[in-house]
Every structure is written in C-alpha cells, then in structure tokens.
Computed example of a mutant assay.
Amino acid sequence: MSGAVLPTIREVARLAGVSVATVSKALNDSGKVSEALRERVDTAARTLGYAPHASARSLRSGATRILGLLVADITNPFFLKLVEHIEQLASAAGYSVILCNSSEDAEREERHLGMLLSQRVDGILLIPVRDSWRGRIGALARLPQPLVLVDRMLDGLEADSVTIDNRMAGYLAGEHLLRLGHRHVAIVMGSPEHPIARHRLDGFREALATGGIALDEQLIARNCFNEEAAYRAVLALLDRAERPTAILATNNHLTLGLLRAVTDRALAMPDALSVIAVDDLPFSAIMRPGLTVVMQPSAAIAEAAISGLLDRIGGRAPEGSARAVVLEPRLAVRGSTAAPPRRA
C-alpha cells in the first residue's frame, strides 16, 4: 500500500518471541533452527507481511535470482514468443527476469547491459541488435556473469549460443516450392551481410539448384529491413512483366509487407501467387488461406537457452569452449502454397 511503513525484522522477532538472529537464520536457511521455531517465525512474517530485503540477501549469498533478457526488437512476434517461454521457464526455476527492449538500437543495448550489471543479475540472455556499439565484443567477453546468445550469433565472441539451422530454413522453403512445380520464384530478405539472412538465401538457392533451377538475381529483393521496405519490394516484383509464381519472405516483418502487397494487388493465394515465410505469425494458421511457414521451435530454443544459462550459473557446465546448440526448423504446409498457375 502506498505510504505504508514496512515491517522490520525486529518486529517479526518480537511477535515470534525469538531473537533477531533466529529470525534471520529461519528465513534465510542459514543456520540450525528447529521446525517449531521456523514455523513460528514464518507465521509471524506472514502476519506482518514481512519479506527479507532482496539486495541485502543477495549481498550475503552472492546471488540475486534475477536474469537479464535483452531483446533486439520486442515488436517481432517470434521474439515475443521467445520472451514468453523464457519467462515461464525462469519463473519455474525460481528466477525473475528483467526484460529490456533494444529496438534494434546499439546505444540502447549498451545502456541496458550497463543497467543489468548494476542490478547484479545472475546471468544474461542476449538477442543482439544488428549494429554493433564501440567495444561491444570486448565488453561481452569480459562479463562477470554467464552469457547465452539467442537466435543471433556475434562474430568474434566466444559465448554459449542457441540458434536454428538457418540454411535449413531456406532449404525447406525452396524444396517445398520446387516439389510443387515452381520455377520462377522470388525471395524478400534483409541484408546479405547479416548471417541469418545470408544463410536462409543460401539454403533457398541450394534447394532450387537440386532441381536444376538457378535463382534469378533479379528476383532477390535484398536489404529489406522492415514491413514498409518489403511492401515496396514486393510491389516491384509483382509489377514485372513476368512476375514470380511464388515468393518467400525470410522473417515476420517482411511477411507482413508481402501480405499487404498481395492484398493491394488483389491477388488470390495460392491461385495467382504462392506465398511462404520463415517464422510463424500469430494469425498464420487462422487466416484463409492459412500461411505456409518454416517454423522456428521457439519453446525448444527457450528451454535450451535457460537450461544452458542455469547450468553456467550453477557451475554444472564444463569449463572451456563455448557450447553451441543448433536446432532444426520444420515446414508447416497450409493453404497459401500450391502448384503454379498455368500460363496462357
């Protein structure tokens, strides 16, 4: 209650009829206390609404039971799912989570990291922003706490990581379209300098090559970093004299731009155009037709990240080289893909 005076440990001791030292031992499991006395102390603490001071307790134990989670962009539906799974798993293990949204801003990420260090978090989960800040690799390498990279790797940093096989994600999409009979396909992607986008392109190209199809460079829309950029790129693809029969979007934001462009051009999926995406959107399964996607195993990623971090915190992970967990994506076929339309 606002303005209320918080009860003190002395008041708990007075109500329980024991010493302050006994209250401290009973509440912190730091000494021999009989069950009867422990029950009296617990009852008194609950009656008064007393809780041990977290900062003081962490100074004694060296642990805060708090994890830091830095997310590159909280508006990304895939990252939102990861956050939900991570928080649930951390809570089940007795940890609280401080969530920081970097909004793909390097300065914000650096500032958030400093805040988490000041809060003495026990470990950090980092989905890094695309652009670096001065001294980032060195600062992360010198962290006193365990660190696990999630979804995105950082060149030059030896750290535990949990990612998916992004080459396989692109391959699954290309293989699916190839089996349907598509030969004239396009891809909408971010920067080829970014490893995730590049690996998904490489896998897509590789799958098409198994069927003797060379991906047309004119049908690769590069450097699309948001929904609006993807929207404009897809409109340009659809306005070509020979438009593609299928388009792959390599992440959630680009998928939204792709779907908006298809709607504005009044093209029916999959009769006029097949659409496939990497990452599942909240509405992908309920839209009509449903959206065919290559799904990332968000629950498994979160579980591997949390278990790996807690192993490091608890000293259960072997010292030495960083551990890299790479999980497999899977294809979910829905109604937005089909055989290409016959040309007149």
Rank of each mutant, 00 (worst) to 15 (best):
R40D: 00
A169Q: 07
G3D: 07
G62K: 10
E87Q: 15
G290Y: 14
I247R: 10
I276K: 03
A56D: 03
S336V: 05
A233N: 01
P244W: 11
T75V: 14
I276R: 09
E328Y: 04
A338H: 10
L177W: 11
V23Q: 06
G17A: 04
L59A: 01
N101L: 13
G68E: 13
T47G: 00
R323S: 05
G315C: 01
A56Q: 07
G314E: 15
R288N: 11
A26L: 09
P77W: 11
A272P: 05
I286Q: 13
L215A: 13
R108A: 07
A221R: 13
I213V: 14
A169D: 04
V33K: 11
I301L: 13
R120F: 00
P297W: 12
R130N: 03
A344Y: 02
P7L: 07
A44H: 01
E175A: 15
L154A: 08
I127H: 07
P192F: 13
A230G: 11
L149H: 11
R343G: 07
N166Q: 13
A322G: 02
L256M: 15
V71N: 13
M295G: 11
F78Q: 06
R243P: 00
D155A: 14
T292F: 11
V188G: 03
S30D: 02
D311Q: 11
A36E: 15
L254G: 06
E206R: 15
T337K: 09
L15W: 00
E206C: 14
R152A: 12
M269V: 03
R288I: 06
R142S: 14
A249F: 02
L219I: 05
R40M: 00
L89W: 04
I66S: 10
V150H: 05
L219Q: 02
A304H: 12
S284V: 05
E107Q: 15
N28Y: 08
V326F: 04
R57T: 01
E104W: 09
L69V: 08
Y231E: 10
K32D: 11
L258K: 11
S298P: 00
D131A: 15
L82C: 07
L215R: 12
G190N: 04
G211T: 07
D264H: 14
A56C: 02
A324C: 06
S298I: 01
M168D: 06
I9W: 01
V12Y: 02
R334K: 10
S19F: 10
R240G: 00
E228V: 11
G211M: 03
H176W: 05
A207V: 01
L69G: 09
S91G: 12
H184S: 14
